[in-house]
């Protein structure tokens, strides 16, 4: 009995010693990662993890924070109607924009996969251009402008479909759908490029082998050959789609104003801005970002599970 314990202790020690040995041997590795890691921890890791603790306080930057238990979370879910609106909108946006942009970026990448290289480069540019600059979507303020000089209003009136111009970005029932359309328009980003590259990377010999094995159309080929071969790319672009789908506020602010009419399209990022930027209630704001954090990590876990079933 005592002998066994001793072996374990020795084993532990050697392991620690071995780690220490490796650390000394490869210390140059630490020098190389440290500059990046200091900034990464300062601006991402520490803020995210500290928000878990700050969420249980009433910190406002001026006074000493008090521990308030679950008070912030109770207020969020029971007494803050605006947060519930923001939460609903954020989830609605994410549920529509996330999968739609993901399917779109993969679908279009798949469509252009068999074009000639020059043509493919050109079409890639057309689809990727809207996400190149965040200011491009301001054009939609003119396309959907609320007077008869707006493109859509002008033509609808010209065809006699409406009598007077619609105030698109001031009418509650139009704000959400239009913002979703605009977000989809500019959602073909890095994940789209990754899908193009992933599709190009599938070995042609596999398609030939599959044809011999009795695959008869491109849909079967897609499911049994292409997708299983690019699972890792699918995961990467899914991660980017989800993150993108949850960071939605900017489009709404530019097109519909902040806050938008009747708080339609009001998202968690607006709520965060309100409490951290305007009111400086960092305890409460941290509780909000903590909720957002949990939602995003949860979504990623679900997607990870789902993607492991591809091609089976």
């Amino acid at each position: 009995m005592s002998k066994k314990k001793e072996t374990v202790a020795v084993h532990n020690m050697t392991k620690a010693q071995w780690t220490w040995h490796l650390m000394k041997q490869y210390k140059v590795g630490y020098f190389m990662v440290i500059p990046f890691m200091i900034l990464f921890f300062t601006f991402t890791v520490i803020p995210v993890f500290a928000s878990v603790f700050v969420a249980f306080t009433d910190w406002n930057l001026l006074q000493t924070p008090n521990f308030v238990g679950f008070q912030n979370f109770i207020t969020l879910f029971l007494n803050d109607d605006l947060f519930i609106t923001a939460l609903k909108n954020t989830i609605l946006f994410a549920v529509v924009v996330g999968p739609a942009s993901y399917l779109m970026s993969f679908g279009i990448a798949w469509f252009i996969n068999e074009l000639s290289p020059k043509m493919r480069a050109f079409v890639t540019l057309i689809f990727y251009a809207p996400s190149l600059t965040s200011s491009a979507y301001t054009i939609f303020t003119y396309i959907f402008a609320g007077d008869s000089y707006g493109l859509v209003n002008g033509w609808l009136m010209n065809f006699g479909l409406i009598d007077s111009p619609i105030l698109f970005f001031k009418t509650e029932s139009y704000i959400m759908p239009l913002c979703i359309i605009v977000s989809l328009w500019m959602s073909l980003n890095t994940g789209f490029l990754a899908s193009i590259a992933g599709l190009q990377g599938v070995d042609r010999a596999q398609y030939e082998a599959a044809a011999v094995d009795g695959i008869t159309n491109r849909w079967q080929e897609l499911w049994y050959v292409t997708l299983p071969n690019m699972k890792e790319t699918l995961m990467f672009s899914a991660v980017l789609s989800i993150t993108n789908a949850f960071s939605f506020g900017g489009v709404v602010t530019t097109l519909a104003g902040s806050p938008p009419t009747g708080y339609v399209g009001y998202t968690i990022s607006h709520h965060l801005e309100e409490y951290s930027g305007a009111r400086m209630e960092f305890g409460y704001a941290s509780a909000i970002s903590f909720v957002l954090f949990i939602i995003q990590i949860g979504t990623n876990m679900v997607i990870n599970r789902a993607l492991s079933k591809v091609g089976k």
């Binding site: 601006f43 991402t44 890791v45 928000s51 960071s247 960092f282 970002s289 957002l292 995003q296």
Partner: peptide
């Protein structure tokens, strides 16, 4: 471990860290 942290950071939007990043 460091690389896993970096991968996980791709999964959260900038708004999550933004609150306390502002303070820092």
């Amino acid at each position: 471990f460091f690389f896993q942290l970096i991968v996980k950071s791709l999964m959260i939007s900038s708004a999550v860290a933004g609150t306390l990043q502002f303070v820092i």
